[in-house]
Design a binder for these strands. Structure first.
Lengths: 155, 155
DNA sequence: CCTTTTTTGACTATCTTTGACCAATAATAT
DNA sequence: ATATTATTGGTCAAAGATAGTCAAAAAAGG
């Protein structure tokens, strides 16, 4: 069990626990130095251990003073969101299914009315597209990305 | 927490807020001195953070008593929205242009952070689409529909 | 063995900082 | 007035600082 990836994972999770803020900022390069490995090893850990399904959110910025931010999501009404996200990965949900889901989020006060309408507009907006084979895939992609935003900016 | 560019940006925005006049005049050289950087760094900040789409106007004059004037545009979000919608009919604005505009609506408190991110996600989400000839048209349609929602549900 | 997970590194993308050279305007000298 | 000089600001491309991607090689599991 003592591989590199696990050590890095543990280290990051320890940092997260210690930090009161609910998130930590690291420098990819520094971290890889600390563990004497290549930088992309850090990406591997992030991709395999800090996924959305596992309740983490990773953001980053390149360039001078860049960073990688790891956020621990507090799950609550959010579990349904994550569940829906997982469903999305599997197949394409019909527009009605998607809308129903959004409406439930709205009823649970997880979405404002305006946010609901915005998202519906996107789902519907694609209808004007005459039968394009990609349509459903596009709809799913957009929906997924929007849901991720909801996870990210939960207030 | 910030790089140079961000610090300068924050500093200028603070000045703008404090100033009752709706604009500020600075000396490029003085500013770069204050932040111990080269003058052109100031131009970088102006070009990336104080664009027209984001609701700022920058004028300047060279030579003795030269200056750089930064003005916060005060069109109401509603009217700029309508104006932007009209522009949309003509041709498609580049993604950067569109995002800048949304950012402005956010700074003017017409959009919440979450709404901003949702809409950005839609604009970016289409990037994952490999070159589809319809991509730009779709982007424009979705953007238009979302903007209409904003007009409708204006609180 | 064969499969899955981990580790590495070469190549790429993005954002920032710097510097050398250019352009415009005002102030001053003739 | 005109020419000259001092004072500003502008442009652009290169260098620097991070982070991301992808696929091959290596290691671990079964």
């Amino acid at each position: 069990m003592g591989n590199l990836a696990n050590s890095i994972e543990d280290y990051l999770k320890r940092l997260l626990t210690l930090s009161g803020a609910g998130y930590i900022d690291i420098k990819r390069k520094e971290l890889s130095n600390k563990f004497s490995c290549v930088p992309s090893q850090v990406n591997y850990v992030l991709e395999t251990r800090f996924t959305l399904e596992k309740g983490y959110l990773v953001e980053s910025k390149r360039g001078g003073r860049g960073y990688v931010r790891i956020k621990k999501l507090k799950l609550s009404p959010r579990s349904s969101l994550i569940h829906f996200l997982r469903e999305l990965e599997g197949g394409l949900p019909g527009e009605e299914h998607a809308k129903g889901f959004l409406y439930r989020l709205y009823e649970d006060r997880f979405l404002s009315l305006r946010e609901l309408r915005l998202m519906e507009a996107v789902l519907e907006g694609l209808d004007t597209l005459e039968e394009n084979p990609l349509k459903n895939k596009i709809r799913r992609d957009l929906l997924r990305q929007m849901l991720v935003v909801l996870l990210k900016f939960d207030y």
